[in-house]
């Protein structure tokens, strides 16, 4: 491996995401992360976006980026691994950022490994914490490992950029400040860069996910304590009433009471809603890895020793089939008077 000139790499670059021409909110979470890192290093924060047309590029500046690189090409309208990889590698080669951070979404987790392999640098998946080591100025990348039983902190000492994906919802979206200024740079590259054998056919919205749990402000989640598919309907009823997303533990998905897109935890999704209501779930470490950064956690469980109470703000020890119907009634009452 040829040694690279580490000192020639400067600045923090985050990989924004868009869908249907609109910057997705996960980008703003990355700006929160990126801003903190850039400030710690005293350097610039830039954001790269790929697409055909994007309506709200200004917002990226307002929310903390000093520069926005928009790689514009019709071939980038939908995510395809190879064109995305080529575009990102091109920008990295031109801009030489010392840190590149992407979201651990299906897009980020697909394209970033390609980029890392292409330019032969390290990549740490699914980080929950990113900090700068004040002595070495290296990026410290912390992530859960081995079923969430441990946390590992990882660094990339001799390769650049230092790259990581971070869990969506593990940081708050950066607030918008319309007075912030910055530079929007459109990058146009030769079409050859985007030639790929793959063909994007279609995007199908999953109608079983009435409220996408990644975007939900409230999530009502059930575990094996809901006893049966029938019992799990109580979770869905409360969720409907609150306009909340439905979450589930791995056990519940395995029992077929709900489908995999609802699975929260290490082998499912990571969420960080304003309110997480955990019903009849004991709080296995694997599940908690996917929800413990929620703002407020409420738990109902029969077992006073259940782990979930350790991360809860409000816990009720009791039978879910007694407590939840009462809760449903109480909320109906509020709705009626509101």
């Amino acid at each position: 491996m040829s040694a690279i000139d580490i000192s020639s790499y400067k600045g923090v670059l985050v990989l924004g995401e868009q869908r249907e021409g609109k910057v997705r909110s996960v980008t703003f979470e990355l700006l929160t992360r990126g801003r903190a890192l850039a400030d710690a290093l005293g350097c610039q924060l830039s954001c790269v976006l790929l697409g055909d047309q994007i309506a709200n590029l200004e917002e990226v500046i307002h929310r903390g980026a000093d520069k926005v690189f928009f790689v514009q090409n019709p071939a980038l309208k939908n995510f395809l691994p190879r064109p995305y990889r080529n575009a990102i590698c091109q920008v990295i080669n031109e801009e030489k950022p010392e840190i590149v951070v992407a979201a651990a979404t299906t897009t980020g987790r697909t394209v970033m490994p390609l980029v890392a392999a292409q330019i032969n640098t390290g990549l740490t998946a699914d980080c929950t914490e990113l900090t700068i080591d004040p002595e070495t100025r290296l990026l410290l990348q912390t992530r859960p490992a081995i079923g969430g039983n441990i946390m590992a902190t990882i660094k990339t000492p001799n390769h650049r950029p230092q790259m990581a994906t971070v869990r969506p919802k593990s940081a708050k979206p950066a607030p918008a400040d319309p007075s912030r200024t910055g530079e929007i740079i459109i990058k146009e590259y030769d079409g050859a860069l985007f030639i790929t054998p793959e063909k994007f056919l279609e995007y199908i919205k999953d109608t079983t996910q009435e409220v996408s749990i990644e975007d939900a402000d409230i999530i009502v989640s059930g575990g094996k304590g809901m006893k049966s598919a029938e019992g799990f309907k109580l979770v869905e009823e409360l969720a409907r009433l609150l306009g909340a997303g439905v979450g589930a533990t791995r056990d519940v998905v395995e029992l077929g009471w709900t489908t995999y897109p609802h699975q929260i935890g290490l082998s499912g999704k990571t969420v960080s809603p304003k309110l997480y209501i955990a019903l009849g779930l004991s709080g296995k470490i694997q599940h908690m890895a996917g929800m413990q950064t929620s703002d407020i956690i409420v738990a109902v469980n029969k077992d006073p020793e259940a782990q979930i109470f350790k991360v809860a703000d409000f816990g009720i020890v009791g039978d879910v089939f007694e407590v939840v119907p009462m809760l449903i009634e109480a909320i109906k009452k509020i709705k009626a008077t509101a």
Partner: peptide
Amino acid sequence: GSPTRVVKVFSPKLSRDTIMKKAD
């Protein structure tokens, strides 16, 4: 051949101030 290095490994800490109530 690995660009990344593990710096440290530690156990995650979980705790909040929990208000506990018992269903009665």
